[in-house]
Simulated assay, not measured.
Amino acid sequence: MDEQMNEYTPDLYELMDEQGNKQTFELLDCMDFEDERYYALTPYFEEDDADKILDEASLLVILKVEYDPETGEEILASIEDEELFDRVGAAFEERLEEMFDFEDDEDGEE
């Protein structure tokens, strides 16, 4: 089997929270919504951090892309408007379900 076809390099972002703590996130998807760009990210952990993966596996972080007026660099910012956040979140949820083909297989049957 071609080894390169099995290699996956995630798009990683190191973000800092309000308390100054850094955490690495993996980009799951990005989309334009109402003339703005948004990123859906999830916490990223190395394979040896399996306990953290289980604790935060369902965490989805949605951030808005803004640009620093001085440098023009991309900045990821929280979405302050709760209604907007809910709409963007619903759009991402639908997209991610389609991308990853999630199925509710509660009884184990195919």
Rank of each mutant, 00 (worst) to 15 (best):
F33Q: 03
Y13W: 12
Y39A: 04
A77Y: 03
A40N: 03
I75Y: 05
L63F: 02
S58R: 06
T9L: 11
E47R: 04
L59F: 10
A40M: 06
Q23H: 09
K22P: 00
R37S: 10
L12G: 05
D17G: 03
P10R: 09
M31T: 10
S58Q: 08
Y13I: 03
E34R: 14
M31I: 09
Y67Q: 09
E73D: 15
G20H: 07
L76H: 06
A77M: 10
E47A: 15
E70D: 15
P10N: 09
P43I: 06
F25R: 00
Y38F: 14
F33L: 05
E46W: 08
L54T: 13
E56Y: 12
D68E: 09
Y8C: 07
E73M: 11
P10S: 09
T24Q: 08
L41V: 03
A57I: 12
Q19H: 13
I62N: 00
L59K: 10
Y44G: 00
Y39S: 00
D55I: 06
E66F: 03
Y38S: 04
F25I: 05
Y44C: 04
P10Y: 08
P10G: 09
F45G: 02
E26Q: 14
Y8Q: 11
S78C: 11
T9G: 04
D17F: 07
D49A: 10
L28I: 06
T9F: 10
L54R: 10
I62W: 02
L12A: 04
I62Q: 01
S58I: 02
N21D: 12
T71F: 08
D17Y: 04
E14M: 10
Y67C: 04
I79A: 03
P43Y: 06
L28S: 02
Y13A: 02
C30E: 15
D55E: 15
Q19R: 15
E36V: 05
F33V: 04
K52A: 13
L63T: 01
F45V: 03
E46Y: 09
K22H: 15
K52E: 14
T24K: 13
L28Q: 11
E14A: 07
L63N: 01
S58V: 04
C30W: 14
S58Y: 07
S78D: 13
Y39F: 13
D48E: 15
E46L: 13
I79G: 01
Y44A: 07
L15M: 08
E47T: 08
N21M: 08
D29N: 13
D29H: 13
L60D: 00
V65A: 11
D11A: 12
Y39V: 02
E26P: 01
